[in-house]
Simulated assay, not measured.
Amino acid sequence: MSDLTKKDLARFSRRYMIASQACFNYETMQSPGAIFAIGPLLEKIYDDNPDVLKDKFKAHLQFYNTQTTFGSAILAATLAIEETRDPNCTETAIAIRTSLMGPFAGIGDALFGTLPRVILAAMSGYAAIEGDFVTGLLTCLLGGGLIFYLRWLLIKTGFYQGAKFISEKQSQLNNIRQTVSILGIMIVGALIASNIGVVTPIEITVGESIKPLQEVFDGILPNLIPVIIVAAVYFGLDLKKMNTVRMVWVIVFISLILSYLGILA
């Protein structure tokens, strides 16, 4: 029968949520936060041998870095392996942790890092622009609550199913990551088209015919100018000594000049 209970796993979840990045450093990355989370549970497993527990803590202080929400499943699987008290369980747990933290970082960053923020922020922001502040607030709250619930499911899956499950399901998780990535790109594209209202008032005169340049751009691609602006900002952020604050000032400066010259409106 398992020595660790759901109450113990809930305690691990709370501690990891609070401290996963709190002691981040460039030598062991997230290991101090991970030990803070699993420490009380290791103490419960090895309370009869303090010397062994000391060695366990040293072993788990090795390099560890992954996406924190998705990585909770890895640490839960680590606890399940440690609970066996096998002589080689720590070496096995560290090996599995090391092999999974890289792939899980890529999958977790997409599923729980970048895309939820983009999608939830886009939906909430659009609702706020339309004057529906309550819907925007509820969208963020419900989205955050869903992520916390999924974290708990990952912890239970990692602990009760063990490392075998999360290893075997890695290909399916990659498919989910790709699907969600496509959805995120669609959301960003819709956000560009609906919220960046930049047009050009320039008109082309050929004889007695006057042709608005904006119609030419729309014939090539609707919302072409907003797409070009977003692409310029995206690639501009990779320039040397460029950061988001400086980019905002560049956008303001260029916008004022182009608006004054009548090039953009």
Rank of each mutant, 00 (worst) to 15 (best):
residue 15 R to Y: 05
residue 12 F to S: 07
residue 9 L to N: 05
residue 172 Q to S: 12
residue 224 L to Q: 12
residue 129 I to S: 08
residue 225 I to C: 14
residue 258 L to E: 05
residue 78 T to R: 01
residue 128 A to L: 10
residue 198 V to R: 03
residue 184 G to R: 03
residue 87 P to M: 00
residue 129 I to M: 11
residue 126 Y to I: 13
residue 95 A to E: 11
residue 113 G to P: 06
residue 55 D to Q: 13
residue 40 P to Y: 01
residue 258 L to P: 03
residue 203 E to G: 02
residue 150 L to Q: 03
residue 85 R to P: 13
residue 164 K to N: 12
residue 86 D to K: 10
residue 80 A to S: 15
residue 73 A to P: 06
residue 122 A to Q: 05
residue 214 Q to F: 03
residue 61 L to N: 14
residue 236 G to N: 05
residue 204 I to M: 14
residue 183 L to E: 03
residue 183 L to M: 14
residue 136 G to I: 11
residue 222 P to M: 07
residue 49 N to F: 09
residue 265 A to H: 11
residue 154 L to D: 00
residue 80 A to G: 13
residue 257 I to R: 05
residue 180 V to E: 02
residue 177 R to C: 07
residue 97 R to Y: 06
residue 37 A to W: 03
residue 167 S to A: 10
residue 138 L to G: 00
residue 173 L to M: 14
residue 145 G to E: 07
residue 152 W to A: 09
residue 109 D to K: 02
residue 250 V to K: 02
residue 210 I to F: 04
residue 105 A to V: 05
residue 66 T to I: 12
residue 257 I to Q: 12
residue 155 I to L: 07
residue 58 K to T: 04
residue 5 T to Q: 06
residue 32 P to N: 09
residue 232 A to Q: 02
residue 51 D to C: 00
residue 81 I to W: 00
residue 104 F to P: 04
residue 67 Q to L: 06
residue 188 V to N: 03
residue 126 Y to C: 02
